[in-house]
């Protein structure tokens, strides 16, 4: 229970003090944002999750992105539905949609669901702004904050055994 409560704080700390570059942090956060926005239960969400875990990006940043945008995504569902509906109904893409649907690609990836498509488009639209913002944030904050935080035993403790073993600063 205690670990559960502290997990977000720990992840935030890890995201900032981990030995990852700002680009890795930014990409991790972007992928997390995409995962957070897209409704789960389809291959798109699974694929994004595998990207987050399989690519050398900052996982804690990704998990933070998932947490934040899952919550925010619920508020934009109606808008995402409209965007997705418009995209799926767009005449020039009908043949493609039909082909994808009949070949079972879109049902498996959930790309025939208005909210999935809408959230994916919103996420894609937000990729660069979010990347840019999170990159700048990481560049500016990561190094000094890391140095400042590491002075505290509590932070070192929060980083956990995995991080400690990774850095060789156990204790």
């Amino acid at each position: 229970m205690f670990a559960f409560v502290l997990r977000p704080v720990r992840q935030f700390a890890q995201a900032l003090v981990a030995n990852d570059s700002p680009r890795q942090v930014a990409w991790g956060f972007v992928i997390g944002m995409m995962i957070g926005l897209v409704p789960k239960g389809n291959l798109t969400a699974i694929l994004l999750g595998m990207m987050l875990l399989g690519l050398r990006v900052n996982k804690p940043a990704g998990l933070m992105g998932i947490g934040v945008f899952t919550y925010l995504g619920l508020f934009v569902d109606a808008f995402a539905h409209r965007v997705g509906s418009a995209f799926l109904a767009w005449e020039p893409l009908q043949a493609t949609h039909t082909q994808l649907f009949e070949s079972a690609v879109s049902p498996i990836f959930g790309l025939n669901n208005t909210v999935v498509v809408g959230q994916l488009l919103i996420g894609l639209y937000l990729v660069y702004p979010i990347y840019w913002l999170s990159h700048r944030f990481a560049v500016k904050v990561q190094a000094p904050l890391s140095a400042w935080l590491l002075r505290y035993k509590a932070v070192r403790w929060l980083r956990g055994a995995e991080l400690g073993s990774q850095w060789g600063i156990e204790g």
């Binding site: 409704p39 569902d77 995402a80 539905h81 997705g84 509906s85 799926l88 009908q94 949609h97 039909t98 649907f101 009949e102 879109s106 025939n112 669901n113 208005t114 909210v115 999935v116 809408g118």
Partner: peptide, 11 residues
């Protein structure tokens, strides 16, 4: 229907 969004069937 799904709980979020609408599933569109093509064809």
């Amino acid at each position: 229907q799904r709980s979020r969004g609408t599933v569109v069937s093509f064809g």
